[in-house]
């Protein structure tokens, strides 16, 4: 192989996408040719230049921009939420909501929805739990809240947050989401909570998933027992 030929092969060689014989041919040439191997050496050095990450300001600015661009006219910008939260909590407490006069309740519910969604994105697991607790105040048919809860159920790193998401989803007409989640690998405690929810919601579509679960080899024994039991319960409810 001469330098002319290597010229066309070198980019692929450097990208590691040549098959072994071709790779060996280029390597041979490089071993013998200081000119071409100098180029390969430069390529290596390019890769050795240290990486950098941006400052934390970048993320903060991004979120400000996102909140600004996606806010509906009556919604407050992101930084106001903390103050609103403090005021709301001071006046109402956590489990409240029942004693609010009707006219005020819609606006407060919107603020709580925003808070819930924001809290679900926080680093702190306790904050995410708080976000989930706020969703109980939301409208049962709110798709955005339901999707946020499903995302927490399927992707949150904390088992406790996922368990709380199952609880919250029971009131949210999320049968499909709950059933889909059972098809994915999950922590056994969450699987049992999902099975409980499926039984409570009397969900027909989950029968197939439950049958698969109770026969699967990589599923916890206690979960399989619960799945078997659930199939019996659904049957007796007249679902099967």
């Amino acid at each position: 192989m001469n330098c002319e030929q290597v010229k066309t092969e070198l980019p692929d060689f450097l990208a590691g996408s040549l098959n072994p014989p071709a790779q060996a041919r280029v390597q041979d040439h490089l071993d013998a040719c200081p000119d071409c191997s100098e180029l390969a050496g430069l390529w290596d050095k390019l890769g050795a230049i240290p990486d950098e990450l941006p400052s934390p300001r970048l993320r903060a600015n991004f979120h400000e921009m996102l909140a600004r661009e996606t806010a509906a006219p009556k919604r407050a910008p992101a930084w106001i939420w903390q103050a609103v939260a403090a005021a709301v909590i001071a006046v109402m407490g956590f489990a409240a909501g029942r004693s609010i006069p009707r006219e005020q309740s819609t606006e407060l519910r919107d603020i709580r929805d925003m808070l819930a969604l924001s809290l679900l994105q926080q680093q702190s697991a306790s904050d995410r739990l708080k976000g989930i607790s706020y969703t109980y105040q939301a409208n049962k048919d709110d798709a955005q809240i339901r999707d946020a809860l499903l995302e927490a159920l399927n992707t949150d790193s904390s088992v406790d947050v996922r368990l709380a998401a199952v609880d919250a989803l029971r009131r949210m007409s999320a049968q499909q989401g709950i059933s889909d989640s059972l098809e994915r690998p999950q922590s056994p405690l969450v699987q049992i909570a999902l099975i409980d929810a499926v039984v409570e919601l009397n969900e027909t579509k989950s029968v197939a998933v439950l049958q698969k679960l109770q026969a699967a080899s990589d599923v916890d024994e206690l979960v399989k027992q619960r799945a078997r039991q659930a199939l019996g319960q659904l049957r007796s409810k007249g679902t099967l």
């Binding site: 941006p54 300001r57 970048l58 600015n61 921009m65 996102l66 661009e69």
Partner: peptide
């Protein structure tokens, strides 16, 4: 993706502030 995009701009411009501004612009 933001880290990747930041590095692209940093390698193209050599300037951190410009790169952060550009990342913002991209997501905007």
């Amino acid at each position: 993706h933001h880290a990747k995009v930041y590095r692209y701009f940093l390698r193209m411009t050599g300037n951190r502030q410009w790169s952060e501004d550009l990342v913002q612009e991209v997501f905007y």
